[in-house]
């Protein structure tokens, strides 16, 4: 439900960067979205399409890269990918873990002319 706020923030960033880089038309936007982020990507695409009407980003595609959840174990130091949302170390079963990726929500770049 908050995809509209997120789409608006993406558009704000894109329009600001477009002015800075003097581009007139945005063709596509590359986003990183972590697997743990509470974002429904199809809903985000729909909201983005609505919001961009009449802006230089009208018709721009969203290229969304989903980022796997990974952690580092603070007990044994090993890095591991989190499967089925179990945040404990597969090597030593430690539960003191630091999340390395999976919460991303960023605009990486955009294609423009």
């Amino acid at each position: 439900m908050h995809e509209m706020s997120i789409a608006q923030s993406v558009l704000d960033i894109i329009l600001q960067e477009s002015r800075n880089h003097k581009v007139t038309r945005v063709l596509s936007v590359a986003l990183k979205v972590g697997e743990l982020s509470a974002v429904e990507t199809e809903s985000l695409r729909f909201c983005f399409e609505l919001l961009t009407k009449g802006t230089p980003a009208e018709g721009a595609q969203l290229d969304i890269e989903r980022v796997q959840v990974t952690c580092r174990c603070q007990d044994c130091g090993s890095n591991f990918a989190v499967h089925e949302l179990i945040f404990s170390c597969p090597s030593c079963q430690g539960v003191r873990v630091e999340m390395l990726s999976g919460r991303e929500l960023s605009v990486e770049s955009f294609e423009a002319e």
């Binding site: 704000d12 960033i13 960023s106 294609e111």
Partner: peptide, 16 residues
């Protein structure tokens, strides 16, 4: 001409 503009900004930066 098409070009790629690097950004790398947190989408929720304004809220943060």
């Amino acid at each position: 001409m098409t070009r790629k503009v690097p950004v790398v900004r947190d989408i929720l930066e304004a809220n943060e």
